[in-house]
């Protein structure tokens, strides 16, 4: 067998494997769509998204509380985690001595490797009581603690190690010459980080945040343990909420005798799928634009 033929066969095999894994995305999307299609015969998409009325047994499927809950929790998680992750990673990459890194990175890896159910338990044991007994009394009369805020805090802690390790990697890719250039002009370390390094790495940082967000969207178990799971749109941080993944996890397999119920749950999965897809593609578009602007 000659060299060219071998190359062709190898390339062909690898290409078909690549194609197979990519077509998985399409297949999952198709599957979810087909499974959820029946519900569109009775309700319009707009009706499903905009209605807050969730009573499956009477045929009312309003997804607004779930979509709202997911957005709230993810938003809180990112708002809490982003500044911490940013400052931590600036410290680790720009200020810390090597032996500090040697201790902190393994700790972060452990944090990232803890099973999500453990985070859930930790949330119930610590975060929920703290919210209900310490924080909430300042703002509302009564709160159980099983709330949007608790979900956001737990989720924020969960995406923290991911964000930090991505950020540190991004900062490490900045050439030393660039730091030297800024420092040699008399900039302090903080000025160098703030004015040069953050600016240079902005596209990468955005991409990392997008990645963390799409991870946060799908996080299920830890969040459903602490957020209360009541299908109402939360009006304050101390109200319970019910994110989309929790809806699917809690109900799939049960109550499937209710007409359209499976279809509705599949639609929830389809929403998640679409949101993550949109996030990934739009983040790429943003990165592309920013890279061209700043490089």
């Amino acid at each position: 067998m000659n060299r060219i033929l071998k190359n062709k066969i190898a390339a062909g095999m690898m290409f078909s494997l690549t194609l197979a894994s990519i077509s998985l995305v399409v297949l999952i999307g198709m599957g979810l769509y087909l499974k959820s299609a029946p519900i569109f015969k009775e309700h319009s998409l707009w009706e499903l998204i905009s209605s807050a009325d969730w009573q499956p047994s009477s045929g009312k499927f309003g997804f607004l509380p779930f979509i709202g809950g997911t957005l709230w929790i993810t938003g809180i998680a990112v708002i809490l985690a982003l500044p911490v992750a940013l400052l931590t990673s600036i410290f680790l990459s720009e200020h810390s001595k090597p032996y500090v890194k040697k201790w902190i990175f393994p700790a972060l890896d452990i944090l990232a490797g803890i099973p999500s159910v453990v985070y859930g338990v930790w949330g119930i044991l610590l975060v929920v009581p703290w919210v209900s007994e310490v924080l909430a009394p300042h703002f509302v009369e009564y709160a159980t603690g099983y709330s949007t805020l608790s979900g956001g805090i737990v989720l924020g802690v969960m995406i923290l190690p991911l964000l930090i390790s991505l950020f540190v990697e991004i900062f490490a890719a900045v050439p030393r010459d660039l730091r030297d250039a800024a420092l040699s002009l008399g900039a302090t370390r903080w000025q160098t980080s703030k004015l040069v390094i953050l600016r240079k790495t902005l596209p990468g940082l955005l991409a990392a945040v997008m990645l963390a967000i799409s991870r946060a969207f799908g996080e299920t178990i830890a969040v459903l343990m602490v957020c209360g799971n009541i299908p109402l749109l939360p009006h304050s941080l101390f109200d319970s909420c019910y994110p989309l993944p929790a809806l699917i996890a809690n109900n799939y397999g049960e109550m499937l005798s209710v007409p359209m119920y499976e279809s509705a749950l599949m639609l929830a999965a389809f929403f998640l799928f679409i949101v993550v897809l949109i996030f990934n593609t739009s983040s790429r578009a943003v990165i592309y634009k920013l890279e061209r602007k700043f490089q």
């Binding site: 050439p175 660039l178 250039a181 420092l183 040699s184 008399g186 302090t188 040069v196 700043f294 490089q295």
Partner: peptide
């Protein structure tokens, strides 16, 4: 140290414009 660095303009091997 920033005062010392201010007194010394550095020109590195490869030009390194700031990202702006």
């Amino acid at each position: 140290i920033t005062d010392i660095r201010k007194k010394m303009g550095l020109l590195s091997q490869r030009p390194c414009p700031l990202p702006m």
